[in-house]
Design a protein around this nucleic acid. Sequence first.
DNA 1: GTACAGATTGAG
DNA 2: TCAATCTGTACT
Length: 221
Amino acid sequence: MGKRLSRKFYTRPTLTVAKDLLGKYLVRKIGKKKLIGKIVETEAYIGPEDRASHSFGGKITERCKTEYLIGGHIYIYLCYGMYWMMNITTEKAGRPECVLIRALEPVITNIHESTTNFTNRHSRKFVPKFVEIRDLANGPGKLCNWLKLNKSFDKEDLTKSKRIWLEDPAPERARYGAGRGIKIKKSDIVAKKRIGIDYAGSWAKKPWRFYIKDNPFVSKK
DNA sequence: GTACAGATTGAG
DNA sequence: TCAATCTGTACT
C-alpha cells in the first residue's frame, strides 16, 4: 500500500490541505477488511473568522472543541439529527480549522463487501436491492455511512489510528513507473462556493469547496 | 424549559 | 416539496 500521511501534511494552511487532499486515499479498516475511497471533493472551514464554521467567534462547545486539536484528527458531528459529517483538523493546536470530506470515489478491492454496506442509510420502508457505486459515497453523509463512521471516531488521530488513516497512493504507483507524486494538477481542481451555508453572509461566497474536475463521484448539487 | 435552524438525504 | 430527528443557541 501507499504511505500513510504524517502530521506534517495536516498542519499546513487549511486551504492548502483541502486542495492536497484531493486524490489521496482514505483507508477504513473493518476487521480484516479494508474500504478505500479516493477523496474527490472537500470544503475548508476556517474558524473563528469564518461565519460558516462551528467555531465562529472562538466558540468552544462540547461538539466543536475537537476542531481545536492539532492537524490530523477527525472532527465528526451529527447533522440534521441523522447524518455524520467527517472533517479533518488542520493547522496547529488551538487553531479551529478543518476540512470537510464531501465525496469519495470508491477504490474497489472487494466488490462484494463494497456493495453490501449501504442499506442502513435508507428508511426501513424502502431498502433498495441495488445501488450504483457512484452513489456509495458522493456526499458527506453518504460516505460516513459507507465507511461506518460515527461519534466514536471523534478525536481519532489519523496519523496513529489502526482503523482509519490516509495514504498517498503515489509510492504504490511509482513501482509501476507511474511517477512520484499524486498531486492533482492545478488545472484539474475546481474551486466553488461551499454548499448549504447560505446563512453565512459574505463567507458563503468564498470559493472554499474543491473538487476534481469532471469526476463523476463528486456530490450532486 | 420551549422554539427553531442546520456543513443532508431520499421519497413523493 | 417535505420530513426525518439530534445539537446548539436564543429566547421565555
